[in-house]
Simulated assay, not measured.
Amino acid sequence: MNETFFSIKEYVQRILYEPGSHGFDHTLRVTDLCHTIGMKEQANLDILIPAALFHDIARPVEKKTGIPHEKEGARIAGEYFTSIGYNDPYIPLIQHAIEAHRFSSDPVPVTLEAKILSDADNLDAIGAVGIARTFISSGERNSDIPDAVSHVYEKLLKLKDLMYTQTAEEIAMKRHNFLLYFMSVLENEIK
């Protein structure tokens, strides 16, 4: 998996070269979280890690065309993994994990690997990194602090209750508590 992992990583990095709230650094953090959670939950890393690396591969396509990145990303992953001769039975499982990772769309994750990818992606949206990404995202939309605060209340504070795995629940609780603390300080400062 090591040589294949590095070639997959390089391929994804060439596509996700632009910085931002869903840049390559986000992909790497999600992949690291998937590895950590996957080891504890005994997931198949030969499915999970490629899915994590590819989970946002179609973000640039979505930005240009409006096609949901999770759907297009699953399609791109299928083509890519077939082209490199990756383990055929794993390809549909990788595609399912990519297609089911998004907080706000169907399908729901049914495999352990898809559940872990969803958990890891949601975990990267809360805690200190999640706060930073929220403000980056607000700036990307030419918006302001109240927009970022709204996003925290509309989405981020709900994420701890949406974890599928025990390992992710434990991580989420710590990050959620930090998010609550940050919001109380922020609200005090902007009154």
Rank of each mutant, 00 (worst) to 15 (best):
M1I: 12
M1V: 14
N2R: 11
E3L: 15
S7V: 05
I8C: 09
E10H: 09
Y11G: 02
Q13N: 15
R14S: 15
L16V: 04
L16Q: 13
H22S: 14
F24H: 05
F24N: 08
D25Q: 05
H26P: 01
L28S: 11
V30D: 04
V30L: 08
T31P: 01
D32L: 13
C34H: 03
C34V: 02
H35V: 14
T36G: 00
Q42D: 13
A43Q: 08
L45E: 14
D46S: 13
I49C: 00
P50L: 04
P50Q: 05
P50S: 07
A52L: 07
L53C: 00
H55S: 11
D56G: 03
K64W: 07
T65E: 15
T65H: 15
G66P: 03
G66L: 05
I67C: 02
A77T: 05
A77D: 05
Y80H: 13
Y80P: 01
S83I: 02
Y86E: 00
Y86M: 07
Y86T: 06
N87T: 11
P89K: 09
P89Q: 06
P92N: 06
P92S: 05
E99H: 13
H101T: 09
R102W: 10
F103R: 02
F103M: 05
D106R: 13
P107G: 07
P107S: 06
P109M: 02
V110M: 09
E113P: 06
K115I: 01
L117K: 11
S118Y: 14
D119E: 14
A120H: 07
A120T: 06
A120G: 04
D121R: 12
N122A: 07
L123H: 12
L123W: 09
D124C: 02
A125V: 00
A128L: 13
A128V: 10
G130A: 09
G130D: 09
G130Q: 10
I131A: 05
R133F: 15
F135P: 01
I136G: 02
S137G: 12
S138I: 04
S138M: 09
G139Y: 10
G139C: 07
E140Q: 12
E140G: 05
E140P: 09
S143N: 11
I145Q: 05
V152Y: 08
E154S: 09
K155I: 15
L159Q: 01
K160A: 11
D161A: 05
L162I: 05
A168H: 03
E169H: 06
E170V: 15
H176W: 10
F178I: 08
F178V: 01
S184Q: 15
L186D: 04
L186V: 14
L186H: 06
L186W: 11
E187R: 07
E189V: 11
I190Q: 08
